[in-house]
Design a protein around this nucleic acid. Structure first.
Length: 416
DNA sequence: TCTGGGGTCCTAGGACCC
DNA sequence: TCTGGGGTCCTAGGACCC
């Protein structure tokens, strides 16, 4: 089996640690959590400091779930600050490896294939990991943790399972650790790739730790769970053929937006929200010079109703036109919506493609098409320069609009 | 006193075509 | 009277991740 030196580095309690660093506090002795208190007690905690974790506060829970006797600082999320830190850290990685050997997995987790650098640096994978982590600490004040493995999977699992409690926050697993460490993982959902549902199915088969997956041969899983079943068996045996260098190219396959509304909406004020979301998505398409030809629209009612619907529509021609996207959404909305309290809206654009040429619809006047796209370009240019709130449609000034608030968010959380 | 948000990949069934 | 089958696209839904 191929043996490489893969580092999987993540930033410990990333958002919470950034907030501590910015305040000159130590996350290991400060009870701080990141959450938006303006969303009420049901707000999600996005991150908590190691100290709070120690006291039993889960890293992703709700504010009202935190035991009353625990005192803490609450920091509203500042997403663009975290992005700034993240970029800084990615640049540190790039001081050590070339971009082909780096795979940024999420805002706070990256894989580095350092195999070909060890001779050059005259270092072991562990000492190089330590050097990179020290550099991060020195330049940003943040503590990181690292899993090291002969492939990406084992590096990731070493990170998840062992690095947080090991010395220097570094855990290295080799193929020899499969039996002693990988196979001992229990409950099953602690393993990357196994969630609650899969765990239950495996439990029903009498499988309670990773090693017990070998109770049945690979073909059993293939028949029962398809491709994912096969992958499950390979992962349970520490086998992973994926390469850091081949993961680099990640182009978005879909653009989506969803929001849980701050209060219940109805048949009449929901279209405004849909309009705003379509507008934001169309803008994203135009900024990236992309088109979509598959539009999904989903809606969920308030908890007391607890039902939802999702439908999608494939277009005959790719588009990035806000009104076309809106019309498709409204079509689905009007066809399926019931007069019940509405609480969540989801819109996703699939089949994203590069926009190479303008496909003119014969039934539309060419002039109108051109005028529209010119107008859109201008709107894009202005909002790029002055921020998204510089130009808003008149409807956005209406009482039920959420766009102003959302323009100050990134991934649904406050930017500033 | 209660609702996070943005993604990816896979499967199954139906429609349609040849 | 009488089971076709393979390929591909579309839609819906499920599961997982950070």
């Amino acid at each position: 089996m191929e043996e490489r030196n893969i580092l999987c580095i993540d930033l410990k309690s990333f958002f919470a640690s950034v907030e501590c660093v910015e305040r000159g506090l130590d996350p290991f002795t400060t009870p701080l959590l990141v959450a938006d208190p303006s969303r009420g007690g049901g707000a999600i905690t996005l991150a908590v400091t190691p100290l709070l974790k120690e006291k039993g506060v889960p890293s992703r829970g709700r504010i009202y779930e935190i035991p009353k006797n625990i005192k803490y600082i609450i920091a509203p999320p500042r997403m663009s600050l975290y992005v700034k830190y993240s970029k800084k850290i990615i640049n540190i990685f790039l001081d050590f490896v070339s971009k082909e050997d780096l795979h940024v997995y999420s805002i706070d987790e990256s894989f580095l294939d350092v195999t070909d650098y060890l001779k050059l640096y005259k270092m072991t994978d562990i000492s190089l990991a330590k050097k990179i982590m020290d550099t991060i600490k020195e330049k940003t004040g943040l503590t990181s943790t690292c899993g090291i493995g002969p492939n990406m999977l084992l590096a990731k699992v070493a990170l998840d399972i062992e690095s947080k409690t090991s010395e220097n926050f570094i855990a290295k697993w080799t193929y020899d650790d499969i039996k002693t460490k990988l196979w001992e993982i229990s409950p099953l959902d602690k393993m990357w790739g196994i969630g609650k549902q899969t765990m239950k199915k495996l439990n029903d088969l009498g499988i309670h730790k990773v090693g017990e997956i070998n109770k049945y041969p690979i073909n059993f899983y293939k028949k029962r769970f398809g491709v994912l079943g096969e992958e499950l068996w390979y992962h349970a045996n520490g086998i992973d053929q994926s390469k850091v260098s081949e993961k680099i190219e990640t182009i978005n396959k879909s653009y989506s937006l969803s929001q849980v509304l701050y209060k219940d909406y109805n048949l009449y004020n929901t279209p405004l929200i849909i309009k705003e979301m379509c507008s934001a998505l169309a803008k994203r398409l135009r900024n990236n010079n992309k088109t979509t030809s598959c539009i999904h629209f989903g809606l969920a009612y308030s908890k007391i109703v607890s039902s939802s619907f999702h439908h999608s529509k494939t277009l005959t021609e790719p588009t990035n036109d806000e009104n076309k996207i809106y019309n498709v959404c409204m079509n689905i909305f009007n066809n399926y919506v019931e007069d019940l309290p509405i609480r969540k809206i989801m819109i996703a654009l699939g089949k994203i493609e590069n926009k190479n040429y303008v496909q003119l619809n014969l039934f539309e006047e060419i002039e109108k098409e051109e005028k529209n796209s010119e107008l859109n370009k201008i709107i894009d240019a202005i909002s790029k320069k002055f921020g998204d709130n510089a130009i808003l449609k008149a409807s956005s000034l209406m009482e039920y609009s959420t766009i102003k608030r959302r323009n100050n968010t990134l991934g649904g959380h406050n930017k500033y």
